[in-house]
Nucleic acid binder design. Structure first.
Lengths: 307, 307
DNA sequence: TCAGGTTACGCCTGGCGTAATCATG
DNA sequence: CATGATTACGCCAGGCGTAACCTGA
């Protein structure tokens, strides 16, 4: 049983059972991949893939176990390589961060700037997506670090660290009637068309739960992943926007006004997550401390079980 | 980076850094192992082993990480092989059980007999040791299943299942004064020289804690791992024996008498543990159900996280 | 007919074993 | 000197790529 064979199986699965695509991704010939997979199946004495004639059309029952184990092995091998890099070509490598728009746009820039200055030879990539996608990217190893709210901390495959707390604010056009009322309530809020994040009302998240518990039905007319998009539409007079408070800046976002909502919703916590058994390069740990200066490296290492 | 190289590193560490011994264990030549390890070190750009001239005298800091990861990979590869065996040469293989004397002698025989009848082609091995050794063997993968009391359930690397509960009894020679007293107490017990398991008083275990909490100092004159040894010495009149109640049988152990102690000590639970990320062959799961018929296979699978 | 997979075959890398050499206690 | 690691070297398995061939949609 060769390590290559496991990589091949792993990649074929990742490429939706397309051997040609896998061989391309692996920079090798297609017959080679085909052959090695056959040899592995022969050695193990079982079929990993279901075939219809010559096409792969699925993964067999035992195949699923093999695929899962192969994925683990591939990850461990990556980790070993990383340990090598860590102790030799110090301070060069890659860092992939998966996060949501709000974090990428409003919270990460300072840390990223600092990081790039300190590690000019690390190739930094930011993957943007909704919380579920962030979680998946971290769990699959596509991203080294994921930054998102709550949901990421509930995944068994991911170790998490609370990063910081935040709340929401309402952005409204100038002269909006809500600016004159003395106290903002859920009821008042529900009277106007609402524009907010598209994931705020999926999967029983916090915001939807608060409305539901209060027996108030908000009038959500439009959703986006993107606070900037939301503000744009608020500017057009299509409604009022409910966004993270860090996404509003009085000067930059004039003429919009903001109304604090922290009395309506409990604080949310943004978590940072890494895959359970990923090895973190030193610069990765340092990035985390740049993002969350309240932790030192030792604390981070401990919290993320990098023993 | 070849899989073989990781096996080599793993085995060299297991053999106390003796490359010759490792090459023997791996059925290959010593220069081969030496070479491959050098190649791996070269590829990773770091030293795994500390060398004094040509002798290996230790594992470097990064080496420790590599060794740990290599061990994981080796284990996963074993698991993959097992999946293969599971679905092809059904019902042949090996099963290694690590357990303490008491379990091996008094509790396992029935299950073992049943198992051997059903799986004549599975090579069954029982490793005997104290609870700490059992734990270590399971954690290291030397044993597939470990059966021991409490301590095994506290190891992070092991998934456990409570197997059954038991308590202790006192074995005394015939005509012993304790046979005439109406109620057995810790104080009464402490008046006589005591013979018991050697691990009963190490590491703050249950028995020692009970005595300590009651402010009673037992007079332990002799310890053994083995209830049979203990009974032998009780027979010689060297003291009274405190053993697991399942280890006493009125007929077989005559002329010794027993006194129930379940009012003095809380029940102990015997746990069955498997390594966190080990793949369990079907016959292994069946062995567990034979030992603990109160669970069905599905329950066992779930409890041990064999998803 | 074409995308996608397997078979056939020769090249050549690289792993292994043997034998010789070197270092440490 | 004996134990144990490294170096040298030739053999050959086996992985890879090219080319030819097969097969459902």
């Amino acid at each position: 049983m060769k390590f290559h064979q496991l990589r091949y199986v792993h990649e074929v699965v990742r490429q939706q059972l397309n051997i040609s695509a896998a061989s391309e991704a692996l920079h090798t010939s297609q017959p080679g991949v085909s052959k090695q997979i056959q040899l592995l199946e022969e050695e193990l004495g079982l079929q990993i893939f279901q075939r219809n004639g010559k096409r792969l059309i699925g993964v067999t029952e035992p195949g699923r176990k093999i695929v899962a184990l192969a994925a683990k092995v591939v990850l461990e091998m990556q980790n070993i390589k990383r340990v090598g890099d860590e102790y030799s070509r110090e301070d060069t490598g890659e860092l992939t961060i998966a996060t949501t728009h709000t974090q990428a746009r409003y919270r990460l820039p300072a840390a990223v700037k600092q990081f790039m200055a300190q590690y000019p030879n690390v190739k930094l990539t930011i993957h943007q997506g909704n919380p579920a996608q962030v979680t998946e990217q971290v769990a699959s190893g596509e991203a080294d670090i994921g930054i998102a709210t709550e949901s990421i901390s509930k995944d068994e495959r991911i170790n998490c660290l609370p990063c910081y707390e935040w709340n929401r604010c309402l952005v409204v056009p100038p002269e909006h009637p809500l600016l004159k009322s003395n106290e903002l309530t859920l009821q008042a809020l529900a009277r106007y068309p609402l524009i907010t994040y598209d994931f705020a009302f999926t999967g029983g998240t916090l915001v939807s739960k608060i409305f539901h518990d209060a027996g108030v039905q908000p009038n959500v007319v439009f959703t986006a992943i993107d606070a900037d998009v939301i503000k744009t539409y608020v500017n057009l007079g299509l409604g009022i926007g409910l966004i993270a408070n860090m996404a509003y800046d009085a000067v930059r976002d004039a003429p919009l006004h903001s109304l604090d909502c922290s009395h309506l919703f409990p604080n949310s916590t943004t978590y940072l997550g890494v895959r359970r058994d990923a090895f973190l390069r030193d610069y990765m740990l340092n990035f985390i401390t740049m993002l969350s200066p309240q932790y030192d490296k030792r604390t981070v290492q401990h919290a993320l079980h990098q023993v």
